[in-house]
Computed example of a mutant assay.
Amino acid sequence: MSKKSKPHQLLVEGKNDRHVIWSLCNQYQLPEEFSVEVPVAEGTEGIEVLLDGLPLKLKEKNLKILGIVVDADRDLVARWQGLRDRLRESGYQDVPNASPNQGWVYSAPELPKVGVWLMPNNQLPGMLEDFVACLIPTDDKLLPKAQSVLQEIEQSNINRYTLIHRPKALIHTWLAWQEKPGMPMGQAITAKVLNSNSQVAIAFIEWLKLLFNLP
């Protein structure tokens, strides 16, 4: 059976998501009973590719369980509605009108089991990098410094990143100041520079366990 035909799949927006999720799964010693897929269309990836391909994905013959992990971005409600509409079009009639706080998992007769997690925590706007920032140890002394530096350059109008990408600038600034500067996010989890026992990480792992029937 090829990787793409695995009966248990987790869809994510990009490769960074995949690396972070696999690193967390390894820390919790979850069995590799699902694949983490990055949908690609015409050489591009991202939320629109994932959403557009969702109805066809749900019709795959061998698919038994499908998880969906996407960024809430600026509008949590709009992102949830976009997913809800596509799921309803695919036969899932009991999709709630709002994102459940601990992620959503649903089984329906004669349809693949589905689950949705909106980064960072199903409750706030944001993205993968906001989730990863929640893994920074609570007593860390570099995080306030990184936040201060970003604020300073923004006030001086010399930042080259857009404010929507501020979470990316923040986490990568913080990672640049570690013992091994510039570690990728997934590697930082593996190296325990980031705390995989944080509340949001535990909640995400519990969602994965529930979705994929893991011990």
Rank of each mutant, 00 (worst) to 15 (best):
M119V: 07
V200L: 12
N159F: 01
N101L: 07
K57T: 05
L135K: 01
A176P: 06
K180S: 09
L63E: 06
E45G: 08
L87A: 12
G43K: 04
M119I: 08
S148F: 11
N121W: 05
N195Q: 09
L54F: 04
T173G: 10
A176I: 05
L111I: 03
Y161K: 13
V40S: 00
I136A: 02
P125I: 08
L118P: 13
L51Q: 11
L58Y: 04
D140F: 12
V38K: 02
R18T: 13
N157S: 12
K113H: 07
I202V: 15
S99A: 14
V20F: 07
M119K: 14
I47K: 15
S23G: 13
V132L: 06
G43D: 02
M1V: 06
D75K: 15
K180V: 12
Q199L: 15
W174F: 07
D85R: 06
A72R: 01
K141H: 13
V105R: 05
E206S: 15
P100D: 14
V116G: 06
W104C: 08
I153H: 04
P39T: 03
L170D: 00
N26I: 11
I171G: 03
E32R: 11
N122L: 01
P112L: 02
N62S: 07
E89G: 15
S35W: 00
I158D: 14
K15G: 03
Q178V: 11
N121E: 14
S196M: 10
W117I: 03
W117M: 05
R74H: 10
S196L: 04
S107T: 07
V12C: 05
Q81Y: 09
H8P: 02
M119S: 14
A176R: 13
M127Q: 07
E37W: 13
G186L: 10
H172E: 07
Q81C: 10
Q102P: 01
V49Q: 01
K57Y: 05
S90T: 08
W177D: 02
L10T: 12
G14V: 02
G46K: 00
K168S: 03
E129M: 01
E60P: 06
D139E: 11
I21S: 05
L50I: 01
M185Q: 14
F34M: 05
A169K: 05
V69E: 03
L51D: 00
E179S: 15
D94H: 12
Y28R: 14
T173K: 13
A201P: 05
P144C: 14
P125A: 08
Q151M: 09
